[in-house]
Design a protein around this nucleic acid. Structure first.
Length: 490
RNA sequence: CGAGGUGUAGCGUAGUCCGGUCAGCGCACCUGCUUUGGGAGCAGGGGGUCGCAGGUUCGAAUCCUGCCACCUCGACCA
């Protein structure tokens, strides 16, 4: 591994890609805009995925899998929806390759052209609702609470590792309900699941709220969202939960008979989070030494680095450590012993710091004599000795403490960079400095567009706890309809 | 699709103006010895059709032509 990363303050986006490549989270794929998630990065995703999956199941959902390929005709059924995705769909037009005339190359076989082209899913609403039509007849068939873990493809022009790639992994929940109230309740419930996982597991504080008309999902009635603040003070949409009303039910003619024996269209929701969350994790917690992982998602929570000098007996050291390591493992701590020979301890320290491991234990002859392990915290950089006996109890406590400390650091950072603006000049100067801006908005798309054109800041959300009474629109000066949060976003 | 820029080893690069011991350097990699508490040292070693295809020339990484690829910047996207 090469030396350090570009400092955050010098070039934030360079810092970001440096951390990803040097911590071996991901690499660029051979096709532009694609990404290989390497084992260490995938390990983080697995922790995130498992945390969500458990909560989805706990709230009554089941997993299923729908096809990657969608008939082109499906995409024309919900006008707004297709409008939103048309420009980024990959299309399958042929089904075969053949050798070229000279036998040296390979080319598309024109004879294999498809009658109806096939779309690679950019999201699965359409396939799923085509199936729900077959499965739903009566209110007794409802609700349907299905989630799928899948890859989707959105042919993006400008990509960034984890934040926006042509193909990404995600989870998409698609539920069908008999009443609007029930569907809206589901939308709220899943947003709350997202908030909880982000804050309690990823240690990323988020704002919760609703998207404005122009920022909402194509095809939704309402889009609820969680928004995080990255280390560059810009906003990152971390998850969305949509109330879709009867839009898709009408497009796919999904009707059911209700308890009064009347026919009605089904009410829908969809909600998703993606591998973008790995990017959020990096940007929210990382520092100039690399990643800092919250213990709950860290593939390795404690790394042990034995320090073996020339005449030392390494097996003696391992005997010394063994009881501690097995006690930690028994209490569910993910421990890794880095016993690679011929690598200096200093090199290992830096490497594991780059990879964001929360706790490092250095153990050599000196510690053995003292009956200690030398402990270093990744979040604060603090170092101290722990007696061998105390360590097995103290380390799990320390992991909890680090989890909290990372959350609190991020919360503090957000608080420092969240401002209230009451005049347009004030607004503009805060946009310059970066951060979230709380202010009034008259509720019109016109105002929203003008603000975006002039400052690049967008409405990130209308927070649930807004209080628009007595304030005016930051731009038009009219009475505010909402109190919103503006920010530049990724 | 509009405007710039770059292609030399896995990565980063020198050389290109002015053809000729220019195919070199750093990192990484391999071997050996000495090391090991914050990115070890020394010695030796492997690896390159100089983006591709033509052309000019006694001779091309270098000059000419044509391709190709990628990067950066401008069009409501987890």
């Amino acid at each position: 591994m090469a030396k350090g990363v570009t400092p955050k303050s010098e070039d934030y986006s360079k810092w970001y890609t440096d951390v990803i490549t040097k911590a071996e989270l991901a690499d660029y794929g051979p096709v532009k805009g694609t990404m290989v998630i390497r084992p260490y990065g995938y390990g983080i995703w697995e922790s995130i995925r498992d945390a969500f999956d458990k909560r989805f199941k706990d709230t009554g959902h089941v997993n299923a899998y729908f096809p990657l390929f969608i008939p082109k005709s499906f995409l024309s059924k919900e006008a707004e929806h297709i409008e939103g995705f048309a420009k980024e769909c990959a299309v399958v037009t042929h089904t075969r390759l053949k050798s070229t005339e000279d036998g040296k190359g390979i080319e598309v076989d024109p004879a294999s052209k498809l009658e109806e082209e096939i779309i690679v899913r950019p999201t699965s609403e359409t396939v799923i609702w085509s199936m729900y039509k077959k499965w739903i007849n009566s209110y007794r068939d409802l609700p349907i609470l299905i989630n799928q873990w899948a890859n989707v493809v959105r042919w993006e022009m400008r990509t960034r590792l984890f934040l926006r790639t042509s193909e990404f992994l995600w989870q998409e929940g698609h539920t069908a309900h008999a009443t609007e109230a029930e569907a809206r309740e589901e939308t709220d419930r899943m947003l709350e699941v997202y908030r909880e996982v982000l804050e309690d597991v990823l240690a990323v504080p988020v704002l919760t709220g609703k998207k404005s008309e122009s920022e909402k999902f194509a095809g939704a009635i309402d889009t609820l969202c969680i928004e995080a603040m990255k280390g560059d003070k810009k906003a990152l949409q971390a998850g969305t939960s949509h109330y879709l009303g009867q839009n898709f039910a009408k497009a796919f003619e999904v009707k059911f008979q209700n308890e009064e024996n009347k026919e009605d269209y089904v009410y829908a929701t969809s909600w998703g989070v993606s591998t973008r969350l790995v990017g959020a994790l990096i940007m929210v917690h990382g520092d100039d030494k690399g990643l800092r992982l919250p213990p709950k998602v860290a593939p390795i929570q404690v790394v042990v680095i034995p320090i073996v000098r020339k005449d030392d007996d390494s097996s003696e050291l391992m005997d010394y450590l063994h009881p501690l390591i097995s006690k930690l493992k028994d209490s569910g701590v993910r421990v890794h012993v880095d016993d690679r020979p011929k690598m200096s301890p200093g090199f290992k320290f830096n490497e594991w710091e780059m990879k964001g491991v929360p706790i490092r234990l250095e153990v050599g002859a000196r510690d053995m004599e003292n009956g200690e392990v030398f402990t270093a915290r990744r979040d604060t950089g603090e170092k101290f000795g722990l007696t061998l006996d105390a360590a097995s109890v103290k380390i799990p406590e320390l992991l909890d403490e680090i989890q909290n400390s990372l959350f609190n650091q991020a919360l503090e950072f957000r608080a420092e960079n969240t401002h209230t603006a009451s005049t347009w000049d004030e607004f503009k100067s805060i946009v310059e400095k970066g951060g979230f801006i709380k202010c009034g908005w008259d509720g019109t798309a016109e105002t929203e567009n003008k603000i975006k054109a002039e400052t690049k800041a967008t409405i990130r959300c209308i927070p649930f706890d807004e209080d628009p009474s007595g304030i005016n629109c930051i731009f038009s000066g009219n009475a505010a309809k909402h109190q919103v949060v503006f920010s530049k976003a990724y």
